[in-house]
């Protein structure tokens, strides 16, 4: 019997702290598709856009995390946009610059870590896209709702780092869901940024951007908005009360990609984080 494929799950601290349902659902769906997402003990902050704003040592954090995966002989799967981009960005720099890699390893050595540059990083959408033909062949349940998509900016841009999908009109998330028979609706603001990072500096602008995007999806006939990044979910779902203060008519359920896919693949609601144990 073939051994099940294993990859290391880099949850990121936002998913770790707030969105256990996303992690649970991602693990359950990938298990159904023949892949085990293994917990990444000792992972640290990905550096996000926070650390490089204050320190040019940010790359050491990513190198440390990549080194952890390397020591466990596994590639990394990510769940958020920023974690994906920053890990890929660091990986590209380190793989392409031997002098930088050596310098970073000097610092890593002080922390008892090392990185040789052998790890691959992929966001969940990419991994699901690899399994698309399998999804098409699997027994599937049909859903009685239609979804619109919110694409995680940092998974597709910059394209020189992402090396995945169209950077302006990304299609992979749609292709994965359509392979599963999910009805996906187009909407005018589909390819606009949700604005979540602006919560750090200009809450009103973030809330207005979110409201416009949600209104556009509602007008196009979506019953739910699908995200695949904790930051998007944070703004669109957890700031719902604030969005509704200014726009009380806006009401749209927000779901994580594997929660929708898992329903099609008949994974239980408990395993999808749609009900507590």
């Amino acid at each position: 019997m073939n051994e099940i494929e294993k990859r290391l799950l880099f949850p990121g601290c936002l998913v770790l702290a707030c969105f256990q349902d996303y992690e649970l659902a991602a693990k359950a769906v990938m298990r159904r598709l023949g892949m085990e997402l293994v917990d990444m003990d000792d992972f640290s902050c990905c550096s996000s856009s926070v650390v490089p704003s204050m320190s040019d040592d940010w790359i050491n954090l990513d190198a440390y995390n990549l080194g952890l995966a390397e020591s466990r002989r596994m590639d990394i799967v990510t769940l958020c946009g920023s974690c994906t981009r920053t890990l890929k960005q660091a990986n590209k720099k380190l793989k392409g610059d031997a002098a930088l890699l050596e310098k970073v390893n000097e610092r890593l050595a002080e922390a008892g870590a090392h990185y040789n540059g052998t790890v691959r990083v992929n966001h969940l959408i990419e991994v699901l896209d690899e399994k698309r033909s399998l999804i098409e062949k699997m027994e599937r349940k049909s859903l009685d709702y239609r979804v619109a998509l919110s694409h995680p900016c940092n998974v597709i841009r910059p394209s020189s780092v992402a090396q995945f999908d169209d950077p302006w009109r990304p299609q992979k998330m749609r292709k994965v869901l359509e392979a599963a028979g999910v009805q996906v609706v187009d909407y005018e603001l589909e390819y606009e940024c949700c604005g979540a990072t602006l919560l750090m500096v200009n809450e009103k602008l973030a809330l207005d951007a979110a409201a416009a995007k949600m209104r556009s999806a509602i007008e196009a006939g979506a019953d739910a908005l699908v995200v695949s990044c904790g930051n998007c979910y944070m703004l669109l779902d957890r700031f719902r009360h604030k969005i509704q203060e200014a726009h009380p008519e806006i009401s749209l359920p927000i779901m994580f990609l594997p929660q929708v896919l898992g329903q099609v693949l008949d994974v239980s609601c408990r395993e999808l984080g749609l009900e507590l144990v």
């Binding site: 256990q20 000792d42 902050c45 050491n60 984080g273």
Partner: peptide
């Protein structure tokens, strides 16, 4: 609560060293 296995967190001293 969600039925996930416990995870071991990073030693913050490691992060401070890296930075």
């Amino acid at each position: 609560m969600w039925g996930l296995e416990p995870i071991r967190l990073v030693d913050p001293k490691v992060v401070r060293k890296l930075l």
